[in-house]
Design a binder for these strands. Structure first.
Lengths: 257, 257
DNA sequence: CGAGGGATTGAGATTCATCAATCTATGTGG
DNA sequence: CCACATAGATTGATGAATCTCAATCCCTCG
């Protein structure tokens, strides 16, 4: 799928979401911030930006002025090999943090591309150390989100290293199904928005897009799921989890203390 | 390789290493603890334990009373699939933290097995929240170490998802070479202790031990490296890094602020 | 309505897994 | 100290999973 390498973030001029009225704050870095602290804490967030689908928002090896909270839409974090091959490391969904790394000013260790139109809340990196020192519950929440992402990353390692093509795709779809469910509370009729192309699925699972195509056909014929244009319909989520050896609990964020 | 599933940690009765005299403290969780804080901070560490090679020290799905700092030796962190297949998630080396996860009392998300005789510094989980609240530079260091591990995990995902057998093994050996080098400052004659069996290498790279054997033979014949019993000799580290597309900097720990 | 990008299908090549046998090093008990 | 047992390493033969190349189809969008 064609990716636009020019980073263009469009600042939202009017009607930016205010943190105190944010409907997904319980998913984000600011989850535990007390109401009375929210006004000064949210000063560390700068603009909200909109970005079109298939635009790069972070580039490996380049520094980035901001890190982001994904407010709306889907984003793929990935790395590119010298051969041009691409590995998708994780799919970010609303509430997720994009571009955090402990050396805040170093070049990015991975890239990020939007899979759909998205809205981002930007945090200037330069201000992060101060925020983390001043508001410990933000620092704590950051650890928790990182820990969840580590867990997901390790499970992905497991699935790519040890499972077959059909199992890997079953795992991926199960993971995304349960993550979407945990964000919105439910998945209407087990049908959901799913902006990954077959090539994206391949880059996430370590398969070629052609083999992904054949494998999706098998999953369709065995009545596990159907992937059509930007759309996933799950027929048998239990069977899918079993096939992919996926445990729904891994998508949960756990509290540090 | 046979693994002993019974966890048996042998407490060191005499001559335990005191944190203030620890020769690898600069690598550990206590790196940044000020001298004057070290006495109370180190109270949160309980016993040191010795464990023989090929013993399990953490078990997936079971809670663990302790988390550990690896003081001496090598440990493999891994997950097991319902099919019995095993994926090694990372190789822990001295200074590394074993068994941290943000939900401290939950069952472990992965197992750990010693690859050599090891010495562990144990931290009772129950005391961790208090430690992290009381000593912020420990909390900060924990984030930094976790961030480094995340970086290593993502690179491993990349190598397993996108590279060939010989590239994956080149990557693994490069990674371990540079990590050992960063711990001890140098690797004498490019020869080092290397307790992974061919089966371990396979479980770390998503290959069968038979294919690992053939691939090691190729690496030997192409004069990149030689792996003999518990021993790795590197002939051409630059070529190896290039082959595996390995960037030495990924093993570094970066400061959070 | 035409162009372009993704999806689909087929054929053939390649990599890696599986099965099976042998070899070698190490440690143990007699 | 030797014989044996055991586990890991090595090699060969075969087969399956997945990749690569190539062609065509189909949908969307301008």
């Amino acid at each position: 799928m064609k990716v636009d390498k020019d980073i263009d973030l469009n600042p939202i001029e009017h009607n930016q979401t205010v943190c105190s009225e944010c409907s997904i704050r319980h998913l984000t870095l600011f989850q535990g911030v007390k109401e009375e602290d929210l006004s000064w804490t949210s000063e560390y967030r700068s603009n909200q930006f909109t970005v079109a689908a298939r635009k790069e928002i972070l580039s490996e090896l380049e520094p980035s002025e901001y890190m982001f909270t994904l407010y709306h839409g889907w984003v793929a974090m990935y790395k590119t090999l010298n051969t041009g091959k691409r590995q998708i490391l994780r799919i970010a969904l609303p509430g997720d943090i994009l571009g955090f790394q402990s050396d805040l000013i170093a070049p990015m260790t991975h890239s990020a591309v939007t899979l759909s139109d998205v809205v981002l809340c930007a945090f200037p990196r330069a201000k992060m150390p101060e925020l983390l020192r001043r508001n410990l519950c933000v620092a704590k929440r950051l650890s928790e989100l990182n820990s969840r992402d580590m867990n997901i990353c390790q499970n992905r390692l497991m699935t790519i290293g040890q499972q077959s093509a059909i199992e890997r795709i079953a795992f991926l779809c199960s993971e995304l199904y349960f993550r979407v469910k945990s964000i919105y509370g439910s998945v209407q009729d087990d049908e959901m928005f799913f902006p990954l192309s077959q090539e994206d699925i391949g880059d996430a699972t370590g398969l070629t897009k052609i083999h992904v195509n054949r494998t999706l056909k098998a999953l369709r014929e065995q009545e596990f799921l159907e992937v059509t244009s930007k759309h996933l319909k799950i027929h048998d989520i239990e069977g899918l989890c079993e096939l992919g050896n996926f445990a729904p609990s891994i998508v949960n964020v756990h509290s540090l203390y």
